[in-house]
Design a protein around this nucleic acid. Structure first.
Lengths: 129, 129
DNA sequence: TCCTCACTACGAAACTCTTCGTTGACATCC
DNA sequence: GGATGTCAACGAAGAGTTTCGTAGTGAGGA
C-alpha cells in the first residue's frame, strides 16, 4: 500500500478546507479570522482541528516559520468528487447516476445553469464516441 | 414550529434506512438478517440504532405486535435530496449546480445514463417555460 | 406448571468530534 | 532586562456514535 484513501472530512474540517482552498496556504490566524466573519469559533479550536487534520493527512504543515502555515493536501475538486462518490455509495446504492438525477430534479435550476449542464453533457458524450 | 427538519442520518442509520426502503416496514430481525448478508452487526446493535432513530424521529415504530415493526418516516427520495442539499451546502458553497457538474465529470457514465439525464433536463426545461 | 426461546430495554464501554482553558516558548517593545 | 503579546501544544470535558453484554418480559410447548 503506497497511499491510503484520505478520510472523509467532518463538518468543521470541511469549513476549514473551504478557507484553505479559497485563500491558499494560511496560518491558523488567517483561517480563524476568515471563519469568524460568519460563525464564532475559538482560535484554539481551529488550531486543534488543524492539528488533527495534519495527523489524518488532510493538510500539510510548513513549520519553517514561527506561525505554521497549513495547506490542503487534496484539491477542492478531488475532495468534492470523493465526497460525492462516498455519498453515492452510502445513500444511492452506489449509483452516481441516480445521485445526479435526484440532485437535478430536487432543485430549481435557472435556465443558464441547465444550459451549462447540457453543454457539459455534450462534452462528455463527445469524448465517449 | 410544526415539524422540525429531520437530522442527518449517520452511516449506520443510512444502512438501516436502505433496508427499510427496500423491504418496507420490518422487524429488527428482518433488518438484522438483511444487513448480515454483507457485514456483521450484532442483533442488539441494530435494535439500539433503531431505538435511537425512533427517538430522533427518523423512523416510526408500531408496537402493537410483540415484535415491533419499524418503518422509515421519510421517503427515500426525500432523504436523498436532503443529503444532497446538505452536501451542497457544506462542500460546494451552497451551489447544487456545481455539485451536479462535479458529479457528472467525475464519473464515467454510460451512453444510456447520459441519455436519461438529458431527457430529464428536457423535462425540467419544459416545465420552466 | 415450568422451561425455553425470541424479543425489547437498559446501560456500559470504546471511540470520535468539538470546544476551549491553560501552559510554555519565543519575540518584540519599552 | 522585564513586561506584553502571539503562537503551538497539551489535556480535559461534553456530546454523539457504535457496539454489545445482560436483564427482564411474555408466549408457546413439554
Amino acid at each position: 500500500m503506497t497511499d491510503r484513501q484520505p478520510p472523509r472530512p467532518t463538518d468543521s474540517e470541511l469549513a476549514i478546507l473551504g478557507v484553505l482552498w479559497e485563500r491558499g496556504p494560511s496560518t491558523v490566524r488567517d483561517v480563524h479570522d476568515a471563519l469568524n466573519k460568519d460563525g464564532s469559533t475559538g482560535y484554539t479550536t481551529v488550531l486543534k482541528i488543524l492539528q488533527i487534520m495534519t495527523e489524518k493527512g488532510l493538510v500539510v504543515r510548513d513549520e519553517s516559520e514561527r506561525a505554521h502555515v497549513y495547506e490542503s493536501r487534496y484539491g477542492e475538486q478531488k475532495t468534492q468528487r470523493q465526497l460525492l462518490a462516498d455519498l453515492a455509495e452510502r445513500a444511492f446504492g452506489g449509483s452516481a447516476t441516480k445521485l445526479v438525477m435526484q440532485a437535478l430534479s430536487g432543485r430549481k435550476a435557472s435556465a443558464d445553469e441547465l444550459t451549462a449542464i447540457r453543454n457539459l453533457l455534450d462534452t462528455l458524450e463527445g469524448e465517449k464516441r
